[in-house]
């Protein structure tokens, strides 16, 4: 029998208790988060969620020993520098909060570009000097203009998914371009026997908004087309009825308080159209008023 230190047992026991006492257990990756930023994020989570860093083996043990059905499968989602998050928030909300708390960070040599990194055209803060050569060396079109270094064209310096080189990282930092995002990556979250991976946890608010609008439009269409009177559809049904009545009155040339001006104007414009054609043949065929 090998001996397990007391503190190790305690730590597993603590983790286990946290697992049992929270509705939601998340598996996060803390890789690349500088210490001070991590402290800040922890503080921000306070009251909503608890972040626990521990050794992989301890976390695995705690998850395995938990009485919660299926929670053990969370250990398949350990990545980078794993940590557990405990909360009673809806896992989708947890994911959203973590995503929103991510901050910009300078490019690190050797990391992967999360998207196309573009150096935009325009003035820089640099006075003429060796940096001009450095810019040009990595393919950024730059020149000196009015005593300043100016980038003449937008330039994609690293394509999405490519590695960021040391030179590029240095230049991006000096240009104050911070293409990286750091923060707590929620890889997966467990709630009520189900493990939701990050792809499921991503909420598209734009889509929710457009779905609501689509649903409303369709409901409105149905109620207007089927002539079902609701507080939303009735104004449109009125407008439809009015348009139809106006069409009938105008097409049948029936003068009413609402059609007479339009019918008079129609006669007038028709007269102008005919007069236009006539005067094109012979200007004297129309009276002076119509000659132009």
């Amino acid at each position: 029998m090998h001996h397990v230190a007391e503190w190790k047992k305690d730590e597993v026991k603590d983790l286990k208790e946290l697992i049992e006492s929270h509705e939601v257990v998340g598996m996060a990756n803390l890789a690349d988060i500088p210490g001070p930023q991590l402290q800040k994020m922890r503080r921000n989570l306070k009251g909503n969620a608890t972040l626990k860093m521990s050794r992989k083996t301890f976390m695995s043990l705690a998850l395995e020993e938990s009485k919660k059905a299926n929670v053990a499968s969370l250990k398949d989602h350990m990545k980078g520098q794993p940590a557990l998050i405990f909360t009673n928030m809806n896992p989708f909300k947890l994911y959203k909060i973590l995503e929103e708390s991510k901050t910009e960070a300078p490019a690190k040599p050797g990391s992967t570009a999360p998207f196309d990194i573009v150096v935009p055209k325009g003035d820089t803060a640099f006075k003429p000097g060796p940096i001009l050569g450095e810019l040009q060396k990595v393919g950024i079109p730059a020149k000196i203009d009015k005593g300043k270094i100016v980038i003449t064209k937008d330039k994609t310096v690293v394509a999405e998914g490519d590695e960021i080189s040391r030179e590029i990282a240095s230049i991006l930092t000096r240009l104050d371009i911070h293409p990286m995002e750091v923060g707590i990556d929620l890889i997966a979250a467990y709630e009520d026997q189900t493990v939701y991976t990050s792809d499921l946890l991503t909420i598209d608010e734009e889509k929710t908004l457009s779905d609501i609008q689509k649903a409303f439009t369709q409901a409105l269409n149905l109620s207007v087309n089927a002539v079902i009177f609701t507080e939303k559809s009735t104004p449109y049904i009125l407008q439809n009825a009015h348009s139809k009545a106006m069409n009938l009155a105008l097409n049948a040339e029936i003068l009413t308080s609402k059609t007479r001006e339009l019918l008079l104007a129609k006669a007038y414009s028709q007269m102008l159209a005919v007069a236009g054609e006539v005067s094109a043949k012979n200007a004297d065929a129309v009276d002076e008023e119509l000659q132009e």
């Binding site: 007479r260 001006e261 339009l262 008079l264 104007a265 007038y268 414009s269």
Partner: peptide, 10 residues
């Protein structure tokens, strides 16, 4: 109806 005005307005 002021015909002149009706025509003008339109």
């Amino acid at each position: 109806v002021d015909i002149e005005e009706a025509i003008e307005k339109t």
